[in-house]
Write a protein that binds this DNA or RNA. Structure first.
Length: 538
RNA sequence: GGGCCUGUAGCUCAGUACGGAAGAGCGGUGGGCUCUUAACCCAUUGGCCAAGGGUUCAAAUCCCUUCAGGCCCGCCA
C-alpha cells in the first residue's frame, strides 16, 4: 500500500518556495473577544511548522501574529465575569474596553496576553502586532486612502461575493469604520451590530465625516487624526498587502468558496496591487464532539493545557492531524497523548521500532515540528501514567519523597542517572499529573488510602494467617528489601498465590487490586495506623 | 436553497492523491514472578471500511445515489 511521503508541511513549504517571494512572511491573526481557546493554536502551530520546515531548508522567514484588538466588542462571553454596567462598553474597540480583571491596560490586552504568555512555552515565537497600534501607522492610513479612492471598484467586487438581503441595497457601503470622538464606540448593537461608517470624505483635504450609530454624533476630521479601521474582508486584504504576506492559514469557514478568503484575495490584488498569500485551510478543534465557542463559554485555553500537560504533546495532537480533519480533544485523554508523544520520540531516536504500517520518514518529520527544545540525544522521560499514579501517593510519601522515588524510577528506566534537565522535566510532569488528577481524571484512575474501614475481609484461614504474619514482620523493623522478601516467603509458606496475597494487602489499604511496590508503601505509612488497619480485618 | 469537509475495531485514528491480502494505539479478555514499581511484560480478542449501486481480474481507495454528523454563504479559527 502506498505510504504518504513525509508530512503535509513539506508540500506547503514547496508551494511557498515556488512563489519566489523576496521575503517569506507567514501570518496569523486572532480577535481577543474573550479567553482565547486552544483551537486558535492550530493556526499558530501550522505557521510554526512551516517556519521550522523552511529553516531546515536554510530559508529565513518572518512569523507575525496580528491581534485584532481594534475590533468592536460585540458581546460579553459566557463565563467572563464583569463589573456592573460593563455592558456600556459594547461597541467600543476591544483595546478601549477596560480589563474586567483590572490587571492589564485593556480587555484586548488581557486576553491576548494570556494567550501570548503561553506561546514561547509552546515553541512559538511570532512577532505580536496589535491592530489598534497598527492602525495608527502610515501604511494603514494609506490603505484607507486607497480604499476611499477606489471605492467604486471595491463595491463592485463586494457585490459579487455578498448577496444583500432585501432589494433596497443602494450601494452606499463603505468599509471605513470610525471610532466616535464623542462616545468612543466603533459600532452599536441594538438587535444587530451596526458599525460606524464614513459617510463622506474628501481626499484632497484628507478629511472624513461620519455619523455615530450609537450616540448620533456627527464628526469630521483628518484621515491621519481620526481613528479609522477597515471592516473585516477589506482589513484582511489590506494587511496582506501592507506586510506582503506569503502565507496565511485560515479556518475552513473563511476558506470556503466565495468566502472571506476569496474576496480578500481579489481585493488584495485588484485594489492594493498585491497578489495575496498562499491559502492554507484547516478544520477546527472540537472539545469532544462540541465545537469550541468563546461566546458560549465552551473553551479550553492553552494556559489550562500547560497546567496539566507538557507542551510537545499539544503540538503533536494538532500537527499529526491532516489539515482538513477535525481534531477532537478531551482533557481526559491527556495521559494517552503524552505517552503517544513519548513513543514518537523513542521512534525518532531509534530506540523503538515503528509498527508495520507507520512511515518512519513521516514520523521523523512530525517529531521535528513538534519539538520545543532541542536535544542532542533522546531525553529520558518519566511516563505520564506513572506520574498519575505516583502523585496520588503524596499523602504517604510527601512531595519530596515522590520526587526522589520518581527520580529513582526514571534512572532505572534510562539506565543512567538523570540529568538536571531530565529531572526538571520529570518534576514538571509530576506537577502536571497532579493537576490533571484533581481536575480531569476519571474515577477508575483515582485511588486513595481510604480512612474508612476496608470493605474487604479475608476469605480463609490462610489469608488471615498471612495478614497476621505480615503484622509480625512489620513489628520487626526490617529493611525495605528484607520486608519485601519476607512477605513473599510468608505467602508461599502458607500456600497462597503470590499475586493473590499481594492483592489482598492492596485491597485492605487502597481498596484496589493492584498498587505500588508493596514494601516501600508499607514503610511509608504511619506504623500504628497501618497495624490497626491490618488487625481490623482479622 | 447553494457549497465544502467528515463517516474504517468499544474509543482515538492511520491507510484514500497513484486500486493489489483490513492496520496501530488505547480498552477488553487470558496468561506471566525464586522474590514484582502488576499503572509492567507477553499473548489474544475485536471491523459488511455509514448504506446501496457501478467500473475492474481486483475497490476502504475511482464513479453515481442515499443516509448521518460538522461547517460556510452575515466579523466566532
Amino acid at each position: 500500500m502506498a505510504m504518504s511521503e513525509g508530512h503535509w508541511v513539506k508540500g506547503i513549504a514547496d508551494e511557498i518556495i515556488g512563489r519566489g517571494d523576496e521575503k517569506i512572511v507567514v501570518h496569523t491573526g486572532k480577535t481577543p473577544s474573550g479567553p482565547i481557546h486552544i483551537g486558535a493554536e492550530r493556526e499558530q502551530f501550522i505557521c510554526s511548522a512551516i517556519q521550522k520546515e523552511l529553516t531546515r531548508r536554510g530559508l529565513e522567514s518572518t512569523f507575525n501574529f496580528i491581534i485584532d484588538s481594534y475590533d468592536p466588542i460585540k458581546s460579553i462571553p459566557v463565563g467572563v465575569k464583569v463589573p456592573i454596567g460593563f455592558e456600556e462598553n459594547i461597541g467600543k474597540p476591544l483595546s478601549d474596553v477596560p480589563d474586567p480583571l483590572g490587571c492589564h491596560e485593556s480587555y484586548a490586552v488581557h486576553y491576548a496576553d494570556e494567550f501570548v504568555q503561553c506561546q514561547s512555552r509552546l515553541g512559538l515565537s511570532p512577532n505580536v502586532i496589535y491592530s489598534h497600534v497598527l492602525y495608527q501607522q502610515k501604511e494603514m492610513k494609506d490603505a484607507i486612502r486607497t480604499v476611499l479612492a477606489r471605492l467604486d471598484e471595491l463595491r463592485i467586487i463586494r457585490k459579487r461575493f455578498i448577496q444583500e438581503e432585501g432589494e433596497n441595497s443602494a450601494d452606499d457601503w463603505n468599509p471605513v469604520m470610525v471610532v466616535c470622538d464623542n462616545c468612543g464606540k466603533i459600532a452599536s448593537k441594538k438587535k444587530e451590530v451596526a458599525p460606524n461608517r464614513v459617510t463622506s470624505w474628501d481626499l484632497r483635504k484628507d478629511e472624513v465625516s461620519y455619523l455615530c450609530t450609537s450616540c448620533g454624533y456627527q464628526g469630521t476630521g483628518s484621515i491621519s487624526g481620526t481613528r479609522l479601521k477597515l471592516s473585516w474582508r477589506v482589513d484582511w486584504a489590506a494587511k496582506w498587502a501592507v506586510f506582503k504576506v506569503t502565507c496565511e492559514p485560515a479556518g475552513k469557514d473563511h476558506c470556503v468558496k466565495d468566502g472571506a478568503y476569496d474576496m480578500g484575495l481579489e481585493v488584495c490584488s485588484k485594489i492594493f496591487g498585491y497578489r495575496g498569500p498562499l491559502r492554507v485551510s484547516y478544520e477546527w478543534l472540537t472539545l469532544g464532539d462540541r465545537a469550541m465557542k468563546t461566546h458560549k463559554g465552551i473553551t479550553f485555553t492553552p494556559t489550562e493545557w500547560l497546567r496539566i500537560a507538557p507542551p510537545e504533546p499539544l503540538r503533536y495532537l494538532i500537527l499529526s492531524a491532516d489539515l482538513m480533519r477535525h481534531v477532537s480533544f478531551l482533557p481526559e485523554r491527556i495521559p494517552d497523548l503524552v505517552d503517544n508523544f513519548d513513543r514518537l520520540e523513542r521512534i525518532y531516536y531509534g530506540s523503538e521500532p515503528p509498527s508495520g504500517n507507520e512511515s518512519i520518514k513521516y514520523m521523523r518529520d512530525l517529531y521535528e515540528i513538534c519539538t520545543v527544545t532541542n536535544h542532542s540525544s533522546q531525553p529520558g522521560r518519566i511516563p505520564y501514567r506513572f506520574c498519575v499514579y505516583m502523585v496520588q501517593l503524596e499523602g504517604l510519601f510527601t512531595s519530596g519523597g515522590i520526587i526522589s522515588k520518581s527520580a529513582d524510577y526514571l534512572s532505572k528506566l534510562i539506565g543512567r542517572p538523570a540529568t538536571e534537565e531530565e529531572r526538571e522535566d520529570m518534576r514538571a510532569r509530576l506537577t502536571n499529573a497532579k493537576n490533571w488528577v484533581e481536575s480531569y481524571a476519571p474515577p477508575n484512575l483515582k485511588f486513595q488510602i481510604s480512612t474508612e474501614a476496608p470493605s474487604y475481609k479475608p476469605k480463609s484461614d490462610e489469608e488471615r494467617a498471612f495478614i497476621g504474619a505480615v503484622i509480625k514482620l512489620l513489628e520487626k523493623d526490617l529493611k525495605e528489601d528484607d520486608l519485601q522478601n519476607e512477605i513473599f516467603n510468608v505467602a508461599r509458606s502458607l500456600g497462597l498465590e503470590i499475586g493473590e496475597a499481594f492483592s489482598l494487602i492492596y485491597r485492605i489499604l487502597l481498596g484496589s487490586e493492584r498498587g505500588p511496590r508493596l514494601a516501600p508503601l508499607l514503610m511509608a505509612l504511619d506504623r500504628d495506623w497501618l497495624l490497626d488497619r491490618l488487625r481490623s480485618v482479622i
